[in-house]
Amino acid sequence: MSLEDLNDEIEQAYANADDELAVSLDRETKNELALLETALEPEETDELVRRAIHMLFQTSVETGTLDFHLRSGFDVTYDEYLSGMTFDEMTGADQYPSMDDERRYQF
Score class of each variant (00 low, 15 high):
97 P>H: 07
30 K>E: 14
95 Q>V: 07
41 E>W: 04
33 L>Y: 05
100 D>P: 07
103 R>Q: 12
10 I>L: 10
3 L>W: 05
25 L>F: 13
40 L>M: 15
33 L>I: 09
13 A>T: 02
12 Q>N: 09
40 L>W: 13
56 L>R: 09
102 E>N: 14
89 E>S: 04
18 D>V: 00
93 A>D: 10
23 V>S: 03
93 A>G: 07
31 N>I: 12
42 P>D: 05
43 E>H: 03
34 A>V: 06
66 L>I: 07
50 R>K: 14
1 M>T: 13
78 Y>C: 00
37 E>F: 05
59 T>A: 13
68 F>R: 15
66 L>D: 09
64 G>N: 01
73 G>M: 10
47 E>H: 07
97 P>S: 06
65 T>A: 15
54 H>G: 06
15 A>P: 00
107 F>L: 08
43 E>Q: 07
69 H>R: 15
101 D>A: 12
84 G>T: 06
17 A>T: 15
67 D>L: 06
54 H>A: 11
105 Y>K: 07
87 F>E: 10
8 D>G: 00
101 D>V: 15
31 N>H: 09
101 D>H: 14
60 S>K: 04
4 E>Q: 08
3 L>R: 03
31 N>S: 09
40 L>E: 14
66 L>Q: 10
75 D>P: 00
78 Y>L: 09
100 D>R: 12
80 E>M: 03
29 T>V: 09
87 F>G: 05
39 A>M: 15
76 V>H: 01
27 R>D: 15
70 L>V: 06
74 F>A: 01
64 G>S: 04
40 L>K: 15
42 P>A: 06
26 D>R: 01
69 H>L: 15
61 V>I: 14
28 E>K: 13
76 V>Y: 01
61 V>A: 02
39 A>E: 15
3 L>N: 02
31 N>V: 09
88 D>W: 01
61 V>F: 05
4 E>W: 00
7 N>W: 04
80 E>L: 02
62 E>C: 02
107 F>Q: 13
65 T>P: 04
89 E>T: 07
88 D>T: 03
33 L>E: 00
18 D>Y: 03
34 A>L: 02
1 M>V: 09
62 E>H: 06
104 R>P: 03
20 E>Q: 08
21 L>N: 02
89 E>Q: 15
12 Q>V: 08
75 D>S: 10
59 T>Q: 12
68 F>G: 06
30 K>F: 01
100 D>F: 13
81 Y>H: 12
100 D>S: 15
47 E>D: 10
34 A>W: 00
42 P>F: 06
40 L>G: 08
21 L>E: 04
57 F>H: 05
107 F>R: 08
105 Y>A: 10
21 L>W: 02
107 F>C: 07
70 L>Y: 02
12 Q>T: 11
4 E>A: 08
26 D>I: 01
32 E>R: 14
66 L>H: 07
74 F>Y: 15
31 N>K: 13
26 D>Q: 04
9 E>Y: 06
24 S>E: 10
31 N>L: 10
30 K>V: 10
67 D>H: 08
19 D>R: 08
53 I>T: 10
106 Q>V: 09
85 M>G: 08
74 F>T: 03
